[in-house]
Design a protein around this nucleic acid. Structure first.
Lengths: 337, 337
DNA sequence: TTGTAGGCGTTATCAA
DNA sequence: TTGATAACGCCTACAA
């Protein structure tokens, strides 16, 4: 039978529990030999201090929550990778939660967390213009929050985003410069802040190039693939844009499928560029022009900010970090490659 | 100031902590009105029982660990989605860990878990032919383990895999039937069981079609993209296969890049098929023929098995479930679309 | 350098 | 139906 707790270990070793605790917690007040003896014996008997009991004592969970809209998505999975990287180095655990872009799930999960379950939270949000009190409660309990990519402007927390306005402006301008005059803007939820910012870049680029903004060219899509297919089919057949700027990767793929089926040639009939973190964008047919966010770095940065807040109790450094996306011009928008 | 523990709540309500506990734990031994009063008051004051204290009492963590080689990968992220789905329904938390295919990380993480941190583990393994005692220790502590996709044959645990042998056989046969005579097999670690099983299917298909097996055509690649690029360049220039069966998605992409750079036409000069869970395989240039594993369903199934083990203490039902992959013949191997 | 003892927040047992 | 109490396993003052 294996040793399951510190008391039994203590008995076996004829030593007190405090000494054992000290051996495990890097305390300086312990004889080196004693420590080694304890650790060796513990290892042999496969003993480790119970994490939950320790947590209960010191109110440190060594755990952070990561809340994202989706997991099976290049942007988020790369960001999670970055977060994981940092957390691992700090010896922290990651509790993962996916909201499916459903605001209620986000609320319910955050509320669950509201009982000392985690030391901090990193999230990319799923709603907007709602009541964010569930997040304010965390603040009152000193659970720091870091937003990445999709943020709530009205919550005072550290944020990591990209230069979405600039990228959107540049992407739209690029399409205009290749000759497009009817550039459609694809968005999933235009009311959420990230959709708005990107759209503003789009609109301002149109303005600069004296192209009138046309409401009809703003295509509000859904989270359902089939619905999107229908919407986009209709758009391509009836509204007939000559350029597409997609604020969401998924919508670019959907457009590709529709174009394949309708026999619309990219970039011949339609030029495209999209926000996307897809590593193999160059391998698509045609290679997709992208605005690529530094997803991994954003994860790293978000986690770093969180640990800064965790380590210095003065969590007043609620910074907003803006990283730069990169524009990759490829065939889909008339590029060479 | 908000109420932070059950005692204060008890004092406020002039009621005992036991009654409050009962209110939160669905105990039948409580007056309905009392319960409602407690829950309402608790909600108002934003109180929830501390998870760690409860854990300490009942040795139930309501948490499972998910250990995977990588996260930013269509197969694993979809599988995680499936696991998350089931766990959420059961009200369980997910602790996520990525091994980067480094065996030592796997060992160290599992050892961390070995102190009542989680109720169960779902994993896709990263090593082979090693000492798996770190996993046997879990068994002795009644922490059930479920493997998916990549398993250790010598560990007696529930397993969820796909019909890799059959799929590999079929894929190879397909290439042979399109006229290939020099089919290369790309693998990352041919010693691990999944690599071996897939290779066996490949070899047997060759045999059936009277094509001699050529050791030179088994290409052992690495986890490093640049290294793979070099290896594959050399293979395509010197060994000159006319077909490629890739057991790993990543290697198929690498091959595409190399072919692009060397001006090798797919499927003209080289036909390809690969294991892949990429949703947009049809959008590649050319559309990639794939063996697609039901990643999401595998996650669902793995989680379901784990919860079965968790719920019935008789965890003797260490089943091995085999799901079927689907073969999608596309342009890269001479298909129509 | 080591040991003693109390308490972290909860829940199960037992008694009322 | 409710309340008092002990225990879950650990860690930290404090004492020795």
């Amino acid at each position: 039978m294996d040793i399951v707790n510190i008391k039994k270990l203590a008995k076996e070793l004829n030593i007190s529990t405090s000494t054992i605790s000290r051996a495990f917690n890097g305390s300086p007040d312990i004889n080196k030999d004693t420590k080694e003896r304890i650790l060796a014996f513990a290892k042999e008997h496969n003993f480790l201090p119970n994490h939950y009991a320790s947590n209960l004592r010191d109110k440190k969970t060594k755990t952070i929550a990561v809340i994202v809209p989706e997991i099976a998505n290049d942007f988020f999975s790369q960001a999670i990778n970055g977060i994981e990287e940092v957390a691992r180095k700090k010896g922290f655990y990651i509790l993962l939660y996916r909201t499916d872009d459903v605001f209620e799930k986000e609320v319910s999960f955050v509320n669950y967390l509201n009982n000392g379950k985690v030391d901090g939270i990193i999230m990319s949000v799923s709603g907007e213009a709602n009541d964010h009190n569930y997040l304010r409660q965390l603040e009152s309990k000193n659970v720091p929050v870091v937003f990445f990519d999709r943020v709530y402007e009205d919550i005072d927390a550290a944020k990591v985003t990209t230069n979405d306005y600039d990228s959107s402006f540049a992407a739209t301008e690029h399409l205009l410069q290749t000759g497009c005059r009817r550039v459609a803007y694809l968005v999933v939820n235009k009311s959420i802040s990230i959709g708005q910012v990107r759209m503003q870049g789009y609109m301002d680029a149109l303005k600069k190039h004296d192209v009138a903004f046309d409401d009809e060219l703003v295509i509000d899509c859904s989270n359902d693939e089939k619905v999107n297919y229908k919407i986009l089919t209709k758009v391509l057949q009836e509204i007939k844009p000559d350029g597409i700027f997609s604020s969401v990767e998924r919508l670019a793929f959907a457009t590709y499928y529709v174009c394949n089926d309708l026999g619309i040639s990219i970039p011949g009939d339609l030029k495209m560029i999209s926000f996307s973190s897809l590593g193999i964008a160059p391998l698509l047919s045609p290679a997709l022009s992208t605005i690529t966010q530094p997803a991994y770095e954003m994860g790293i940065k978000a986690a770093t900010l969180l640990f800064e807040a965790l380590e210095q109790k003065t969590s007043n450094l609620k910074r907003h970090i803006v990283l730069k996306s990169k524009l990759f011009i490829r065939k889909s928008s008339g590029g060479e490659k």
